[in-house]
């Protein structure tokens, strides 16, 4: 019982520190020109650099979903365009937002956490503070804004590539005709599912960037602690993404 109590209070205290850090982050930047330059740098580092992984994973997962759907349709009464329809629903509803966010939590989250954590243990953050720079705002705000504004691009790329993956299966194998697949993609299409996915991704991007920044910013010690903070950041943001996914699905659908 005492352990549970300690666990709860420790995590409440941690959440309190997280909120206080966000208070420091969401203030007016010291210099807008510097903020904008850093924002562009972060869009490149966190966003553009993630396009390749999003592209690759999405195209293969799209293909796999199409193959598995085709393999599971055994009844002759189910039309083959169902493959396109189901692939589309899976990609739009869950894969391009949630699964992609979990992958980005690993790639981007660990990168943010280790970068800021290393700056902390090598006193670079103290150096900023001594100069009179709001280090939390200077380091973290560009990352949050970059990821939140760029994630819709990544989600859109993921959707397109996922659906293309399924199309290539139809085109280059004899599992199902690609024309039926395209017909399936268009059948019973609900535009809101695209927006639903993008809306969810905005929340996920916020979680990935803020949680990773928090763990990096508050790290104490040396290289081992930076590594641990990086792992903790990925674990906590992944769990938070899953919890948020349930909550947002209940609210939005």
């Amino acid at each position: 019982m005492k352990l549970i109590k300690t666990f709860i209070f420790d995590n409440l205290a941690k959440f309190g520190r997280y909120i206080m850090l966000l208070g420091k982050v969401f203030t007016r930047p010291d210099k807008w020109s510097v903020f904008f330059k850093r924002y562009i740098d972060e869009v490149y580092k966190l966003g553009f650099d993630s396009i390749a992984i999003v592209f690759t994973i999405s195209i293969f997962i799209g293909a796999v979903i199409a193959i598995q759907t085709q393999k599971n349709i055994t009844s002759p009464f189910i039309p083959s365009y169902t493959i396109g329809m189901l692939t589309r629903e899976t990609i739009l509803l869950e894969f391009s937002s949630t699964i992609m966010a979990l992958i980005l939590a690993g790639k981007v989250g660990s990168s943010i956490s280790s970068e800021i954590g290393t700056m902390r243990v090598t006193e670079q953050i103290d150096a900023l503070e001594i100069m009179g720079v709001n280090s939390a705002n200077f380091l973290i705000l560009p990352k949050i804004t970059a990821l939140v504004t760029f994630i819709p691009v990544l989600v859109t790329i993921s959707m397109v590539m996922g659906l293309l993956g399924g199309f290539f299966v139809g085109e280059f194998t004899d599992m199902f005709p690609s024309s039926k697949y395209i017909y399936g993609l268009q059948s019973y299409f609900q535009e809101f599912y695209v927006w639903y996915s993008i809306i969810k991704s905005l929340f996920f991007a916020f979680v990935i960037s803020t949680v990773a920044s928090f763990y990096g910013y508050t790290v104490k010690g040396g290289a081992t602690e930076v590594g641990k903070a990086s792992t903790d950041a990925v674990v906590v943001s992944s769990v938070t993404i899953l919890l948020l996914d349930v909550l947002l699905t209940k609210i939005l659908l």
Binding site: D30, K31, T122, E123, A127, I130, M131, V133
Partner: peptide, 29 residues
């Protein structure tokens, strides 16, 4: 704080910036 300079034990230079950019940083801010 703009009247204070500090030399840290580990130097604390910003490792993503060149030496010149490091020195120019306080002037930029």
């Amino acid at each position: 704080r703009t009247e204070i300079g500090m030399l840290f034990q580990g130097s604390a230079l910003f490792d993503s910036m060149t030496v010149l950019e490091n020195v120019m940083f306080p002037l930029l801010m």
